[in-house]
Amino acid sequence: MTDLIERELALPAPAADVWRAITDPGWLTGWLADEVELELRPGGDARFLIGDEVRNGWVEEVSAPSENLDRGTGCLAFWWALDDEPASRVELILTPISERETHLRVVETRPLEILDLVGVPLRGHGSTRYGPALVAA
């Protein structure tokens, strides 16, 4: 079983604003983490400081609403992990409800946990690029 968390909410703002809220490091420090470094391209580095914990990761998918003009949806997917814990994947998907309201769906999954159970070493990977290699394997 893949560990999965899913949350949904409607925000009173246009999709373009919500996109900035989930991708702009300055805005992200207001709700996601205390310090955020996010290289907005597939394979880009990500680093989050939350309290005294550092989460390192990488960006898997970046798809801004301005690139999806027909439906106006946006998607940001990244991986993150504390040094000694299995990595998890975070997907933030936004869909316009109206010009002033946007639906945001958050899914965090830990699909690599199964590898951990069968003894594939995943702990202690630190900031190494554990993600792409394992996903491709």
Partner: peptide, 17 residues
């Protein structure tokens, strides 16, 4: 993790007033 997202999304919603 579910609790963490509840807290984060409450903060996000409050940044939109």
């Amino acid at each position: 993790v579910g609790g963490q997202w509840d807290d984060r999304l409450a903060r996000l919603a409050s940044t939109f007033g």
